[in-house]
């Protein structure tokens, strides 16, 4: 819960930040004292201020990923005091304000850690594995211009709402960072469920789940052990129920792929 503190009180904290010059360099924690911290400042704004201070001292600023600063683009990605996106609930790092901390706190800032998210520099990691999973099947194959009238495909409101719950995923990777096994199941499940819940997504439903899970496995993520650390840190509070749904979809698709009759014409050129 956020304390109702006056914006006048400034305080001081120490940032203990993971510094690593590049993927093959060795990394270490470095302490940066920050004074005149306003409770109304966002955590990333504090990093901006610290970086400006480093710059004028001719030190290299801390590299960190950020963009929209309103919790929707999914770029920001710090693990703060061991928790991806920090101590808040249902927010991304950019929505974390300094009033969540106390005077004298030491705040430990690390990158998201997973083999599938190789470190680029300092707090920046490469999350392109998510894009590769999407490219494997995270779509409905509709050509531009080939769509029927939008209202010709009614979608039951409950399904549309549930699909929207899954679709709110911002692709930040906090689920992977929080998972004890660096598993990407929540991300993939959200994507699979969003499309699988809608009538438009049915024709490719089986193919999609099989392809996306395969791409996920190839990227080197760990396995799900049903501990739900992922959904606990998700900035959009996406539920792990979607993981159960994907498990079911996957198994169904596997068995269908094995036993469903196939047309003898399939595979031939049209």
């Amino acid at each position: 819960m956020v304390s109702e503190r006056s914006s006048k009180e400034f305080f001081a904290v120490t940032l203990r930040v993971w510094r690593q010059a590049g993927p093959s360099a060795s990394g270490r924690f470095v302490d940066y004292p920050a004074t005149n911290v306003s409770p109304d400042m966002s955590f990333l704004e504090l990093l901006d201020v610290v970086n400006d201070g480093l710059t004028v001292k001719d030190e290299e600023p801390i590299a960190f990923a950020h963009d929209c600063r309103e919790g929707i683009c999914g770029t920001c990605s710090c693990t703060i005091n061991g928790k991806p996106h920090g101590p808040g609930h249902g927010i991304a790092t950019c929505q974390l304000y300094m009033r969540s901390f106390k005077d004298g706190d030491t705040i430990i800032v690390e990158p998201f850690r997973a083999r599938a998210f190789p470190l680029v520099k300092d707090l920046v990691t490469d999350r392109s594995a998510f894009d590769r999973i999407q490219q494997a099947g995270g779509f409905i194959s509709v050509r531009t211009g080939a769509a029927p009238d939008a209202n010709s495909i009614p979608v039951p409101k409950d399904d549309a709402d549930l699909a929207m719950d899954a679709a709110t995923c911002i692709g930040c990777g906090a689920c992977v960072a929080a998972c004890k096994n660096a598993s990407a199941m929540l991300f993939v499940a959200a994507k699979v469920s969003h499309l699988g819940l809608m009538p438009q997504g049915q024709p490719e439903r089986d193919k999609r789940v099989l392809a996306m899970v395969q791409a996920m496995d190839e990227a080197g993520f760990g396995n799900c052990t049903n501990q739900y650390e992922c959904s606990a840190v998700c900035p959009k509070l996406i539920t792990h129920d979607f993981i159960a749904r994907m498990n079911r979809d996957y198994v169904k698709a596997l068995f269908k792929a094995k036993f469903k009759p196939v047309s003898s014409a399939s595979g031939g050129a049209g």
């Binding site: 693990t79 096994n181 598993s183 080197g220 760990g222 501990q227 606990a232």
Partner: peptide
């Protein structure tokens, strides 16, 4: 496999609800 998926661990170990 799960251990290999995170070769470098965190400086702070934190558990949310496992």
């Amino acid at each position: 496999e799960n251990r290999a998926a995170r070769p470098q661990g965190y400086g702070v170990e934190h558990t949310n609800r496992a």
